[in-house]
């Protein structure tokens, strides 16, 4: 039984977490502050038997507040342990896993690294990550199109990332749905490969709005493509003036140093005020 909530997750399968998960979710709705306004003018107002009474309840509550509570719990966990958690989002085929395996190989001498892999099916990506020597856990979302705060919370129970470590969460390849679900990460990192259209940021604004960093991947292929880098960056900034853009190639290693510097700087920010963990 799950220790976080004692409830199931439908089709989701988390490696090493395979117990009966078929029962339905029932969470108590807390956090809402409703104000009720009786609409029952006329006869119904008098609570007459047999007559129905209608009223409007004003709520103004975030629909994803439950997810946000799980995400908040994850975030507190990361803060306590001084873990830098990054949520990597992209279309399928942007080179996320290749980028991640290279990043792990280059950084693992200095940092403990663990990875949560989200895919609809197969544990192929977690196996690719484990081949680098990093600790990895696969979550299969089944028909689900994104990871959510609850799944990540469960994955953390099994994965148990070390104090002061780096945690990469590779979301399901999808530029739409993962934008709406906070996992408790410090930053969303959107990966866009130059083999995709340069106008992806304006086609999928929600995701590029939610990301703090855009990695423009596969830049070694630029000579063969008609991809306008400046234009792509301009599009991304139209959606999100805060977004930082780094150009990288996970294959040749070009630009990867700047990505590593960004990770190290973000980790220092995450560790600020956490004297328990050496920077």
């Amino acid at each position: 039984m799950c220790t976080v909530c004692g409830c199931g997750e439908g089709e989701t399968k988390i490696e090493g977490h395979e117990h009966d998960h078929n029962h339905h979710h029932h969470h108590d709705g807390h956090g809402e502050h409703g104000h009720t306004h009786d609409y029952g003018q006329g006869p119904a107002h008098a609570h007459a038997p047999g007559l129905s009474q209608s009223r409007m309840v004003q709520i103004e509550q975030d629909i994803l507040s439950k997810n946000n509570q799980y995400a908040g719990a994850n975030r507190r966990y990361f803060e306590q342990l001084g873990i830098l958690a990054l949520n990597l989002v992209s279309s399928p085929g942007s080179g996320k896993t290749t980028l991640l395996t290279r990043t792990i190989s280059d950084l693992m001498a200095n940092y403990a690294i663990s990875v949560i892999e989200g895919d609809q099916q197969t544990a192929n990506d977690a196996q690719r990550i484990r081949a680098t020597g990093a600790n990895a856990l696969q979550i299969n979302t089944g028909k689900g199109c994104h990871l959510d705060g609850h799944m990540v919370g469960h994955a953390l129970e099994t994965l148990k990332p070390e104090q002061g470590s780096l945690l990469f969460i590779e979301n399901v390849g999808n530029l739409v749905c993962p934008a709406a679900f906070d996992l408790g990460e410090a930053h969303k990192v959107a990966i866009l490969s130059v083999t995709e259209g340069e106008d992806k940021p304006v086609k999928y604004p929600d995701m590029f709005h939610a990301a703090d960093l855009m990695l423009l991947n596969k830049i070694d292929l630029l000579p063969h493509l008609d991809f306008d880098v400046e234009r792509c960056i301009d599009y991304a900034q139209r959606i999100n003036p805060r977004i930082k853009v780094l150009q990288v190639s996970a294959t040749t290693g070009e630009g990867m140093e700047a990505w590593y510097q960004w990770i190290v700087a973000s980790r220092q920010m995450a560790l600020a005020g956490n004297p328990a963990v050496p920077a």
């Binding site: 609409y39 309840v57 003036p241």
Partner: peptide, 19 residues
């Protein structure tokens, strides 16, 4: 620019019937 609104997803109200 800074976003003031446009990323919300809110349950605003529900109309309930008591019979």
């Amino acid at each position: 620019t800074q976003l003031i609104s446009g990323d919300e997803l809110l349950l605003a109200s529900v109309e309930l019937i008591r019979e």
